[in-house]
Amino acid sequence: MKNDAIISVHELKKYYPVTKGTFFSRTVGYVKAVDSISFGIKSGETLGLVGESGCGKSTTANVMLGLESPTSGQIMFDGRDITRFSRQELFDFRGNIQAVFQDPFRSLNPRKKVKHIISEPLFIHKVCSRKEIAFRIIQLLDLVGFDPFQAGLYPHEFSGGQRQRIAIARALALNPRVIILDEPVSALDVSIQAQILNLLIDLQKRLHLTYLIISHDLAVVEYVSTHIGVMYLGHLVEMAPSEALYNNPIHPYTRALLDSVPVADPEDIKEVTLEGEVPSPLNPPEGCAFHPRCPVCEPRCSKEGPFMREVAPEHAAACHVCG
């Protein structure tokens, strides 16, 4: 899977130092936001990353976008390691990978017209002439279902769902090959959420895009993704094709996560399967990060951390006990 992947990460780590003191500050520890994760996404596929807040999914996205540099590890795009890029190379590379963020009320500049928002990447990367830009704006607006006249409006004249469409159009401007979607629908209402998800799927088919989608909503991720990775406290604990993950979850955390999603059916009342809360990443538990909450914990779980093991083709989980 990793070999023919368009983008893949290997042993990626991102640690944030925790310092004490103002003048003579010294590092007293690290927050291991992302700790040795590896995965790859094939061209045209969608990987969904799920997990609770603070598990490192957004950090992973930021590192892959080149917005933050990793502590160690590789990010391979088309056979080249982007963590070793120079500034100029990184600048040229950024057109290949674009992002759509969570809150469309904050990710669009309120003082710029839609056409300026969408064309900004085109200007910065100088990919086409002024005349072509005007044409490209109309083309991009059409892709996300807007009329050309709406190019002259300001973001505040649009609703949340429409703004997210603008953000998507901006992400598409440079013809990227990979789009990272960080909680693209969590700020939207249900009826609008469905419109955006359908749009994303249509665009993927039409433009042959590769997505990395991050969400806390398992149902949303399952709907759009071909593969799903489950994260817990900076670790990837399970990775599988989405159907396999749902039908045959291996890791106890994945099972608990799937079980705790409320269902819109009053005859299917969920029982609480997971007690306690996610431990602080400043002081993570020894061994397997999940063991203090794990229902099937064994003595060795608190001593050594498990590694990802393949349990079925393309299906890997990090657990000593299960699988």
């Binding site: 609703s159 609008i192 469905a194 419109q195 998800l197 359908n198 149902a219 709907y223 749902y246």
Partner: peptide, 19 residues
């Protein structure tokens, strides 16, 4: 229009327009 976990539906139904 709400995707349901484990019940793949093909294309999601969406209500057109805005509130």
């Amino acid at each position: 229009s709400v995707p349901v976990l484990g019940r793949p539906t093909g294309r999601l139904y969406s209500i057109d327009g805005q509130p």
